[in-house]
Amino acid sequence: MMRGIRGATTVQENEAEEIVSHAYELVADMVHQNNVDANDVVSILFTVTEDLNAAFPAKAVRKIEGWTYVPVMCMQEIPVPGSLGKCIRVMMTVNTSAKQEEVHHVYHYGATVLRPDLKK
């Protein structure tokens, strides 16, 4: 069965090192909390808000050993007025036997406000 694992984080500045490091921290936590193996990943989609353009957050995936061939893509979020700024969102599609309610979605830093109902 394929499932989507959601995640989001924020950064303080539009700075390449911070974007990649926060994206890495987020993806690593998503992988850990859901016991994801690279061979089970279908693809990973990253979005960033329009105020982030210093780096591709997908570079973070390439820092994980064994994840060289995982397909990743970056896109820009829709600039909805009043939405959370300096935000990186992730949709990781994986093959898993976990039920939807067993999937651990991960929200870091300022992004915890996006889905308080999913806090565990």
Rank of each mutant, 00 (worst) to 15 (best):
R115V: 02
A54F: 05
G66Y: 12
G7W: 07
N35V: 11
A111M: 01
A16K: 12
M92L: 07
H108S: 01
E13S: 13
V42G: 00
F56A: 14
I78F: 14
K99S: 08
A28Q: 04
V72C: 14
P116I: 07
V36S: 00
K119P: 03
M92I: 04
V31Q: 01
E101K: 11
T93Q: 13
H105G: 05
P81E: 07
G66K: 12
N95G: 09
K86N: 09
E102S: 02
Y109V: 10
I64S: 00
K59L: 15
V90L: 10
A54K: 09
N34R: 02
S83N: 13
G85I: 10
I88D: 04
A16C: 06
T10P: 00
M73F: 12
M1H: 12
M73S: 14
T68Q: 15
Y69K: 14
I19T: 01
V41L: 05
Y109E: 10
W67F: 15
H104D: 07
P79A: 12
V31Y: 01
E25V: 03
Q12C: 07
T10Y: 04
P71T: 03
V103F: 03
A111N: 05
Y69E: 11
M1I: 03
M75N: 10
V72G: 09
E13Q: 15
M2H: 12
G66R: 10
A16T: 09
T68R: 15
T9K: 05
M30K: 00
C74K: 09
V41W: 07
V94I: 15
V72D: 06
T68M: 08
A58I: 05
G4M: 12
M1A: 13
E18L: 06
V90P: 10
Q100S: 13
I19C: 01
N14E: 04
M30W: 09
A38P: 14
H104R: 12
H104G: 05
E17P: 06
G66H: 11
I19H: 03
T96P: 05
L118M: 14
M75H: 08
E77R: 15
Y109M: 03
A60G: 01
V27I: 14
T112F: 01
T47D: 11
D37R: 12
T9M: 01
K120D: 13
V90N: 03
T49N: 00
E25I: 01
M73E: 14
E25L: 09
L84A: 04
R6P: 00
T112I: 15
M1L: 11
A111Y: 04
N53C: 10
N95E: 15
L84T: 07
V72F: 10
F46A: 02
I44E: 01
A111P: 09
M73V: 12
N34D: 00
L84W: 09
G110Q: 05
G82E: 06
D29P: 01
Q12F: 07
C74Y: 00
K63Q: 14
V103A: 04
N35S: 15
T10E: 00
